[in-house]
Design a protein around this nucleic acid. Structure first.
Lengths: 219, 219
DNA sequence: TGTACATCAGTGAACGCGCGTTCACTGATGTAC
DNA sequence: TGTACATCAGTGAACGCGCGTTCACTGATGTAC
């Protein structure tokens, strides 16, 4: 590709590069609009406008709204994974690790809107097994990645986990989601501190064997 | 009101009684359809049909879809409160009480669909402060009722709570909701037992003072 | 007990609107020679 | 380097459909006398 006269405000790009750029922008604006409006109220119109294109461009890059959404979830998940990787350096015991983990999750979804978007999409999967499979795959990958990262950190710092880490991890994510969702209805009631505390309490409680309850017969 | 000739299949009722009956049926079928289809996909058409009336009857009894939904939430909440009242007899320590509480919550929403409906409605409250206020009121009343019931039971059985019970209670409800919502995406992964365990772990963990973390400066 | 009129819960059809999806078209990039 | 044609990402307008809401109407219940 030859050097162009000068850097124009709108650079000349190859067709594939421009398409990739448009796709990237749609994913970004999609992310923003889904969070701002919610899964249903987010319109392709607004997403496209915010990316500087028209609705048709969405269909040139994705199969439709659901497909764009999946790309958004994938991108967001990817990004978060990178954040987690950097976050577990200083944790010296299991509770500190848990607290750090909780803190990141809260920071990544401070008002519960992303959790709302995600679970709204989950509701949609009742009639759309393809969507379900894709969203579940992403969650499984993320859970396994986070589990591995935590395990590495735990090993390095000599922390021991009393419970299968992946399971703890998935439960923790689910539970945190519930706490964040509460903020949709009532943004002020649960503080960051309280949410962290609840999560840490859960991890701490899982570390002690259950007593009482009907834990005898069943596996 | 005079005695009629005989009990017909469709009894003759006074106007107010028939209207109350219709309203009751709409609330019941609304509850069923919201759970079956989800908050958005539930249509007034289906709700009305299932109640044996037409859509217009909804508008004769409610202001619209949101108003019907509020009535459904109120009825459901009322019903659950009565269930809780009966459920805490045999609990002899705090963990047994927690486990019993968790068990009821799981039984009341075994596949997470109600949690999904409710949180979808919460998302709607972003542009509808009136809806928010009403839903929040219901939650506050329910939380306070449950808190009181638990407190009575705890007093009677000599159990002590290490944490303000209403707060524990609201956190617990939120957290449980997250666990149940996981089943929308993946119905099989989290067993009833695991969800109970997670809830109990949380309560148990809240009972011990936090150590580590940044609990120093902040209140 | 009977008659005439008023009320109003529920009917059924039409309305309106938002929004995802489709499609013929355009103009810039890519390719062949 | 230049010309002629092919490709195709993105345009913009139209489509279609579902669904909440509205509204004129009906027929059973209620009321007055």
């Amino acid at each position: 590709m030859q050097a162009r006269v000068r850097g124009q405000s709108r650079a000349r790009l190859s067709r594939v590069d421009r398409k990739a750029l448009t796709r990237e922008r749609l994913i970004e604006s999609g992310h923003a609009v889904f969070i701002r409006r919610g899964f249903h109220a987010a319109t392709l119109e607004e997403i496209a406008m915010e990316a500087g294109v028209t609705k048709g461009a969405v269909y040139s890059n994705f199969e439709g709204k659901a497909d764009l959404f999946i790309a958004v979830v994938e991108a967001r998940t990817e990004q978060r994974m990178q954040g987690y990787r950097r976050a577990y350096r200083e944790a010296k015991d299991i509770e500190a690790l848990a607290r750090q983990h909780a803190r990141i999750m809260v920071k990544d979804d401070p008002n519960g809107r992303w959790s709302s978007v995600l679970t709204s999409a989950w509701a949609e999967t009742a009639d759309d097994p393809d969507l379900r499979k894709k969203l579940l795959d992403i969650q499984v990958r993320a859970t396994s990645f986070i589990g591995q990262t935590i395990k590495e950190t735990a090993d390095r710092t000599g922390v021991e986990f009393p419970y299968p880490i992946e399971r703890l991890n998935r439960m923790g994510g689910a539970l945190m989601r519930g706490l964040l969702l509460q903020r949709l209805l009532d943004p002020k009631h649960l503080t960051d501190q309280e949410i962290e505390d609840a999560f840490v309490a859960f991890v701490r409680g899982m570390g002690r064997p259950a007593r009482g309850g009907n834990t005898d017969g069943e596996q």
